[in-house]
Amino acid sequence: MTYVRGVTKRLGSTQALRGVDLELRPGVTGLLGPNGAGKTTLMRILATVLAADEGTVDLLGRDPRDPRERTEIRRQLGYMPQEPGFHARFTAFEFLDYVAILKEHTDRRARHDEVRRVLARVGLAEVGAKKTRALSGGMRRRLALAQALLGDPRLLILDEPTAGLDPEQRLRFRELVSELAEDRAILVSTHQTEDVAALCPRVVVLAEGRVLESGTPETLVSHAQGRVWAAAERDPGAVIAWRGADGRQRQVGTPPADAQLVEPTLEDGYLLLLEEHACAAA
């Protein structure tokens, strides 16, 4: 079990997290939120890169404040940061080999077998000899995911893992993560609500360092029930609207009495939840 209770974190003059509660169980939990919501700060705390100012953090039944327990956590943890750094002169294989050494894979033959395993797992087996600087953006994202998979960790923290992936690669990512989630906890931070809808039985929405919603995707969708409609022209009660492929305006907000309602999506519920929070804070 992994959880945080009442976690706060200040970064300089910014209050990045304000009393955050989060529980991770086996399976995939999606973390949604606008830029500046505190998602990356929370993930860096879960990855033991940062320490919380206040609150309780329990990672895999261990306390990351204790140096010995923190080391044990890191042996069972895979972290894919939003902006991983690559040494330009390393090949993909050499980069993963270097990370594996840092993760205490001391036996050379076993370590190289593990590097080849994770390269194949993310579809990069054919480019192991290429320099990281020669890889496409999507390949570098997959290489970042590969380093997180070294050692078959029990807890995976993935920050914007599908950024830069083309549609086929995103589908393959979903397939891989769904397989991995059979026996471990995975937290995925993303701006792609369709990834959350496709992958995550649990979703957490963060804004201004606070948890606005924690539940199932259906709970989030319910915020937009009866508040999405289609019409020929934009209505004044719409928070947001766009013209769809059928030529009609798909609108989210407060519908008129005679509105032709349509089924809401996870994205609709997410947008309305953020809008309600912004109005309440104003």
Score class of each variant (00 low, 15 high):
248 R>D: 11
162 T>A: 00
178 S>G: 12
112 H>F: 15
217 P>H: 07
199 L>N: 05
38 G>E: 00
270 Y>R: 01
198 A>M: 08
207 A>M: 04
4 V>L: 08
22 L>C: 04
154 R>P: 06
135 L>M: 12
148 A>R: 06
252 V>N: 08
91 T>D: 06
257 A>V: 09
4 V>E: 04
138 G>P: 02
25 R>D: 13
6 G>P: 05
272 L>Y: 09
90 F>R: 10
48 T>N: 00
5 R>E: 05
213 E>G: 04
216 T>H: 09
204 V>I: 14
144 A>F: 12
14 T>H: 12
164 G>V: 03
163 A>F: 08
203 V>L: 03
198 A>R: 11
144 A>E: 06
194 E>H: 12
114 E>W: 15
42 L>Y: 09
106 T>R: 13
209 G>I: 06
113 D>R: 13
199 L>R: 01
135 L>Q: 14
201 P>M: 03
96 L>A: 09
192 Q>C: 00
93 F>N: 10
187 L>N: 00
223 H>T: 07
110 A>L: 08
206 L>N: 07
163 A>K: 02
278 A>R: 15
279 C>P: 09
166 D>F: 04
238 A>C: 14
85 G>T: 06
144 A>T: 13
60 L>F: 06
13 S>P: 08
233 E>Q: 11
72 E>P: 00
207 A>Q: 15
148 A>L: 14
